[in-house]
Simulated assay, not measured.
Amino acid sequence: MSSNNLDALYRQVIMDHYKKPRNRGVLGDDSVTVDLNNPTCGDRIQLTMKVEDGIVQDAKFEGEGCSISMSSASMMTQAVKGKKVEEALKLSEIFSNMMQGKEYDDSVDLGDIEALQGVSKFPARIKCATLAWKAMEKGLHDQN
């Protein structure tokens, strides 16, 4: 597939998650809740996760922000549901490396998340893409 076709496909995936976000909402009282914002651009997220027996049973988010921020939150919640806490944190590390243009473990199937790879070319947008992931990391570390 040509680079232009791949870029167009990635834009479509990002816009699909932005227009039809997965896992939008809030979980109940027994969930881990993290509120984060990006003061430089105004993106904000509230992430709620239900973690039982070391597994992220469910994850939902609310918030406002750009298409990169909100689609990344949608993708992240899909990716971590059903994963062990260690696996979710490993995915976050892989995502962070991808955003920084570093080498990362490409043996892990990132699914739709791979569509955000191009964000690494735009340093001002990296914080948008990583906001939900930072919230997930904070929530998983704080709940232990």
Results as ranks from 00 to 15, higher is better:
residue 59 A to G: 02
residue 86 E to N: 11
residue 52 E to F: 00
residue 68 I to W: 06
residue 128 C to Q: 05
residue 128 C to T: 08
residue 51 V to G: 02
residue 108 V to R: 02
residue 57 Q to F: 00
residue 46 Q to V: 14
residue 128 C to I: 10
residue 143 Q to I: 03
residue 30 D to E: 14
residue 95 F to D: 00
residue 36 L to G: 04
residue 120 S to Q: 15
residue 118 G to V: 07
residue 96 S to A: 11
residue 37 N to T: 06
residue 8 A to D: 14
residue 70 M to E: 01
residue 53 D to R: 09
residue 98 M to L: 12
residue 70 M to A: 05
residue 7 D to H: 11
residue 29 D to Y: 02
residue 5 N to D: 14
residue 117 Q to N: 11
residue 119 V to A: 08
residue 69 S to I: 05
residue 5 N to V: 10
residue 48 T to K: 02
residue 74 S to V: 12
residue 34 V to K: 04
residue 27 L to C: 11
residue 20 K to W: 00
residue 138 K to V: 06
residue 115 A to R: 05
residue 91 L to P: 05
residue 68 I to T: 06
residue 52 E to I: 01
residue 29 D to S: 14
residue 66 C to G: 05
residue 24 R to K: 14
residue 103 E to A: 14
residue 113 I to K: 01
residue 99 M to D: 04
residue 15 M to D: 04
residue 4 N to I: 14
residue 17 H to S: 10
residue 130 T to D: 10
residue 3 S to H: 14
residue 98 M to I: 08
residue 139 G to N: 02
residue 105 D to M: 09
residue 32 V to F: 03
residue 33 T to V: 13
residue 58 D to N: 12
residue 139 G to F: 03
residue 29 D to G: 14
residue 79 A to R: 10
residue 14 I to M: 06
residue 7 D to T: 05
residue 142 D to G: 08
residue 100 Q to A: 15
residue 36 L to C: 02
residue 97 N to G: 04
residue 46 Q to I: 13
residue 27 L to M: 11
residue 54 G to P: 04
residue 17 H to Y: 05
residue 94 I to D: 07
residue 18 Y to L: 04
residue 87 E to R: 03
residue 57 Q to R: 15
residue 45 I to M: 15
residue 72 S to D: 03
residue 19 K to R: 15
residue 55 I to A: 07
residue 126 I to N: 09
residue 122 F to C: 00
residue 79 A to M: 13
residue 85 V to T: 12
residue 132 A to P: 02
residue 88 A to W: 06
residue 123 P to Y: 11
residue 52 E to G: 01
residue 33 T to G: 01
residue 127 K to H: 09
residue 75 M to Q: 04
residue 1 M to W: 13
residue 81 K to R: 13
residue 117 Q to G: 06
residue 53 D to N: 15
residue 75 M to F: 02
residue 70 M to P: 00
residue 12 Q to N: 13
residue 127 K to M: 11
residue 141 H to V: 08
residue 75 M to S: 06
residue 69 S to T: 07
residue 2 S to Q: 10
residue 66 C to A: 11
residue 9 L to I: 11
residue 24 R to W: 07
residue 131 L to Y: 11
residue 85 V to S: 04
residue 103 E to N: 14
residue 60 K to I: 02
residue 58 D to T: 03
residue 5 N to L: 15
residue 34 V to R: 05
residue 144 N to E: 12
residue 27 L to Q: 06
residue 6 L to V: 13
residue 119 V to Y: 07
residue 141 H to C: 00
residue 111 G to A: 03
residue 118 G to A: 09
residue 8 A to E: 15
residue 95 F to P: 01
residue 135 A to F: 06
residue 121 K to F: 13
residue 41 C to F: 08
residue 128 C to V: 10
residue 127 K to A: 13
residue 127 K to Y: 10
residue 114 E to S: 13
residue 136 M to E: 02
residue 60 K to N: 10
residue 51 V to Q: 03
residue 31 S to Y: 04
residue 21 P to Y: 04
residue 117 Q to Y: 12
residue 118 G to H: 08
residue 115 A to Y: 05
residue 7 D to A: 12
residue 51 V to C: 05
residue 144 N to T: 07
residue 119 V to E: 08
residue 115 A to F: 07
residue 24 R to G: 01
residue 134 K to W: 02
residue 7 D to Q: 13
residue 40 T to S: 14
residue 109 D to G: 03
residue 48 T to Y: 06
residue 97 N to I: 01
residue 23 N to H: 15
residue 85 V to N: 03
residue 86 E to M: 01
